[in-house]
């Protein structure tokens, strides 16, 4: 079940999607965090950030919209408040980082990349819900490169670039990340989307638009993982609507080395553990020795 993302070793391929699992302690009463391949925490920027106004989420058919807007305690706040919590656990810690400027990305990388407890940085260049940075860096390949270059220059810690789904050709971004020295890719962020109350004629989210997640986006995510995997040799963490072991295996066959369980954590906090157990059972039943042997085995 072991997989590697750069020098980050995960004892199984399953992590949780940033933003669906808080900073770690929130779900510790419900599941043993050490059973996860890694914990990926909510996005952290250099300075504390207040995020969007409410309403911030809205349930849709087989999915949900969110426009939380990356509220957070800032890099130092995260270190003070949450790094001590993880001292009691051995699970690798992936910290999602974001910035409003290229300099911001560099600064947060310097602070968090030097933390011994941080196993990898997941670089969010694709948040659909913050005006500055965010999606802009994720959809313009030149700006995208400047961010990845900056982050790479500031740390030896593995960096995983989280790609935006709403681009004409995800292969260009995947390739660019690899060329800039990324250790892995996370595919995909939530898909820009909208819902409107027809009676009030107002958008359901205060931010008006948000990101769609959940089973509704799974086929989109599988396709993007499949495309990205053909373009690069670095490992991919696949995500988007994973609820079951079969969902996760589909991503792995499409080309993902790791997978992240996201919205399913809200539905059932034990979703990620069920996915881990189910993958293990499936591999045994199908006489597959290592999950790595299954990666990208989709047939033409």
């Amino acid at each position: 079940m072991r997989v590697k993302i750069g020098s980050l070793e995960m004892k199984n391929p399953v992590t949780v999607a940033s933003g669906t699992f808080g900073y770690g302690p929130e779900y510790a009463d419900y599941i043993d965090l050490d059973r996860l391949g890694a914990v990926t925490v909510k996005g952290i920027s250099v300075e504390p950030h207040v995020g969007n106004q409410t309403p911030r989420t809205f349930e849709t058919a087989s999915g949900m919209l969110n426009a939380i807007g990356l509220p957070g305690p800032g890099a130092q706040g995260f270190i003070d408040k949450y790094i001590p919590f993880f001292a009691e656990y051995s699970v690798p810690l992936i910290v999602n980082i974001w910035g409003k400027t290229v300099e911001d990305y560099g600064a947060v990388t310097e602070i968090l990349g030097s933390q011994e407890r941080v196993g990898a940085l997941e670089v969010n260049v694709s948040c659909p819900n913050v005006k500055e940075g965010g999606a802009l860096y994720g959809t313009n390949v030149d700006l995208f490169r400047t961010v990845v270059d900056e982050v790479r220059a500031k740390t030896e810690t593995p960096i995983i670039i989280k790609l935006a789904p709403n681009v004409a050709d995800i292969k260009r971004f995947a390739k660019a990340a690899e060329e800039c020295g990324a250790d892995g890719l996370a595919v995909m962020n939530s898909y820009p989307a909208m819902a409107i109350d027809i009676e009030t004629r107002k958008p359901e989210l205060a931010n008006r638009t948000g990101g769609l997640s959940g089973p509704a986006i799974k086929p989109i995510a599988v396709k993007l993982v499949w495309e990205a995997a053909q373009a690069v040799d670095i490992p991919i963490i696949g995500m988007g609507g994973i609820y079951t072991p079969e969902d996760a295996l589909e991503f792995i066959v499409a080309g993902a080395t790791g997978v992240a369980v996201g919205t399913a954590n809200f539905t059932d906090p034990s979703s990620a553990l069920r996915v881990i157990d189910g993958i293990e059972t499936w591999l045994a039943e199908h006489h597959v020795r290592s999950v790595n042997d299954l990666v990208g085995t989709v047939r033409a």
Binding site: E26, Y27, G51
Partner: peptide
Amino acid sequence: RNMACGVGACLTCVIKRKTEAGWEWARCCK
């Protein structure tokens, strides 16, 4: 408030709580 995770992780159900400096988000679920 509308709620998603219920355990303090997702920051959906926040309200504004007064602080000395102004306000901060507080989670209705936690």
